[in-house]
Design a binder for these strands. Structure first.
Lengths: 164, 164
DNA sequence: TTGAAAATGAAAATCAATTTCATTTAGGAT
DNA sequence: ATCCTAAATGAAATTGATTTTCATTTTCAA
């Protein structure tokens, strides 16, 4: 499905990149894993994205920079990034699991068009508050949430659909 | 994964069952499909559930009532039920797609334990309001949403985990 | 009653996600 | 700098859920 995307995200500064790498490598050290060029390249590529990427999509981007990096490594690295909080998994209504990076991103949510797949980010402090409140109420240690609103976007609603 | 579930849902009254069937059959008629015993049995079984069921889980329940109904039919019927709004798909963090019936259910959301998979329903009028507001703001015709909070439940947080 | 369109269900195909395994690499110890 | 072991890599195989195919059966309107 087409993944048109509307948001306000800027590419990461060198600062930010460095800081994210620090987080990643501290995590690796903590769990006794090693620093490799592949992991470096994958993190780098990932941080430059703005979209919700499937593993395969990220793999294709990574391959453009280094054709020798395999799918499996991207897959495993994405898991590591999720572990240390740099990536978060977003299960999509089409059944695929997508990732977006969380570094220096405001917490946000998505409005998704069920016709064309366009997604718009939105920000809502109320949602954060609900997360806190509900966590407290049910004595869960709430760590994250997932909020998507589905609907039909203006463009898809408009045309009486000229059939070819 | 274990699907412990905590909610306040009551089994459907005969009334409710009948009304849901009406909705279903009106939908079938509208799109030119036929009324069959299998579809009847599947809808019936589905409405009696309270959980988030995978297609396979519903299939197993249906099979208890009529061993001749196949997986494929359950799969296709679930799709039809989703089309007419009687079922809704909930993409789970473990990657599976689950369904829950929406008939006579208050709109609700889920708090999911990422350790044991336990889920608690919660109700939040604010969430409905956010759906409306955001839909209006971005000129989407908002039809539904998906809100899950992830965290660690009290039980999973507690024990320092006696290893066997 | 009949015939066309649809439904069924077993089996096959698909496709993303995950694991295996032989080989290579990183990095601490020497 | 070299060695050594644990870890990483990546191609290929496996898994497992989902979806499609197709031969047969059923529904339902005329």
């Amino acid at each position: 499905m087409l993944q048109r995307r509307i948001d306000d995200h800027a590419p990461p500064t060198r600062e930010a990149m460095r800081e994210a790498q620090d987080i990643f490598y501290r995590h690796l050290k903590r769990v006794g894993l090693k620093h490799t060029d592949q992991r470096d390249a994958i993190l780098r590529t990932f941080l430059e994205t703005r979209d919700h990427l499937s593993t395969d999509e990220l793999f294709r981007l990574v391959r453009k920079k280094d054709a020798k990096i395999g799918f499996t490594t991207v897959y495993r690295t994405l898991k590591l990034l999720a572990e240390c909080g740099l990536a978060s998994m977003v299960p999509f209504p089409d059944g695929t699991t997508r990732f977006e990076h969380q570094f220096n991103r405001r917490s946000h949510h998505h409005m998704v068009c069920t016709e064309c797949g366009a997604s718009v980010e939105f920000f809502s402090p109320e949602v954060e508050k609900i997360e806190e409140d509900i966590g407290r109420k049910y004595r869960f240690d709430a760590t994250r949430h997932n909020f998507q609103i589905y609907g039909i976007c203006e463009d898809c609603r408009k045309p009486p659909r000229k059939v070819v």
